[in-house]
């Protein structure tokens, strides 16, 4: 039982964060609160992808004993690279892109929020809908 929990609890952690973000996006009426919920949701997804890259007992994906020259690696074939020693670098790269795109999304969303505030003078969703329906 303990073994089962230890090998799966990390996925449940990200699921809990995702539920918090989802609830904030749907139930909160303030637009900035909705954007905060979106931020939490996105970092939960990044958390999930990073946790697929973990290998037990592995270090950061920076190669040791590398001299920085291409010929060394070919000539000394003896010091072959042990793949199980390093974490999986591919999800790290994809999530690096995702973080930058997340901040770009945040910037555009905040610009739209500022425009809505200039037009209607409030950030609460129900008041905005009332003003829109009134014409």
């Amino acid at each position: 039982m303990f073994e089962f929990i230890v090998s799966y609890y990390n996925y449940w952690m990200y699921i809990g964060l995702m539920m918090i973000g989802f609830y904030a996006m749907m139930a909160k009426r303030n637009l900035v609160k909705k954007i905060i919920g979106m931020n939490i949701f996105q970092s939960a997804i990044i958390f999930f992808y990073i946790s697929t890259s973990v290998k037990k007992g592995a270090t950061v994906p920076i190669l040791e004993n590398a001299h920085g020259h291409a010929t060394h690696g070919i000539e000394h074939g003896a010091n072959a690279i042990n793949v199980m020693q390093y974490a999986n670098p591919l999800p790290h790269v994809l999530m690096l892109t995702a973080i930058v795109v997340m901040v770009a999304t945040l910037g555009v969303a905040l610009a739209v929020v500022i425009l809505i505030y200039r037009r209607y003078g409030t950030l609460e969703e129900d008041e905005i809908m009332k003003l829109v329906r009134r014409g």
Binding site: E64, A66, A70
Partner: peptide, 11 residues
């Protein structure tokens, strides 16, 4: 990574 790009940091 080392033989193609000569960079120790794989990311």
């Amino acid at each position: 990574s080392i033989e193609h790009a000569a960079t120790p940091n794989v990311v």
